[in-house]
């Protein structure tokens, strides 16, 4: 993807690539705490059914994933594993930080063992607030991320600000 990364691709081709990346997001579920259950509801329950958005929640390993949902409390003991996971994902990769704990520490803002925000370790594209967020909120986060991927120019994808849902 050397051409893509340098941003020298003709525009129609970039759009085509973006369109196809947008609707085949393979999402790795990094279930950590309470939010993992709401993420499970969003991804595995017939009521919310994330697959209609073109999101496939079943990669067996981070090496097959485009998107990771960090759902829940990241503790200091867990933080190296989160970093390693992120490093294992192939580029281009996206991160959704789901729930207050992953965003900023949440109710454990004064705890001695909790990492206050996963953005200290890895770059985050979408913040979904809530404790835990409803499955609809996660779906909105995914839709907003897809919109951004759709009009994304590969050259400056790291320059934008993260999205905050709500």
């Amino acid at each position: 993807m050397g051409l893509v990364e340098s941003g020298k691709l003709p525009k129609p081709l970039t759009q085509l690539l973006s369109l196809s990346r947008k609707y085949s997001l393979w999402v790795y579920q990094w279930g950590l705490a309470c939010c993992a259950i709401e993420m499970g509801s969003a991804f595995a329950s017939p009521r919310y059914d994330v697959m209609r958005l073109g999101v496939i929640p079943f990669p067996a390993s981070p090496r097959q994933a485009d998107l990771v949902v960090i759902s829940g409390t990241v503790t200091d003991k867990m933080a190296p594993a989160v970093k390693r996971l992120y490093d294992q994902m192939p580029d281009p990769k996206y991160v959704i930080s789901m729930g207050s704990c992953a965003n900023c520490g949440g109710p454990y803002w004064d705890s001695y063992s909790v990492t206050k925000g996963v953005d200290q370790i890895i770059p985050v594209d979408v913040y979904v607030p809530g404790c835990p967020p409803r499955p609809e909120a996660l779906l909105e986060g995914i839709v907003l991320l897809q919109e951004r991927i759709g009009r994304e120019d590969m050259a400056d994808r790291w320059k934008g600000d993260p999205i905050v849902v709500g």
Binding site: T75, K77, M78, D110, S111, Y112
Partner: peptide
């Protein structure tokens, strides 16, 4: 265990 230790007993004290 310990990957999800959030220090509840200590937090309850404050």
């Amino acid at each position: 265990p310990g990957y999800m230790h959030r220090g509840y007993e200590k937090l309850c004290e404050v």
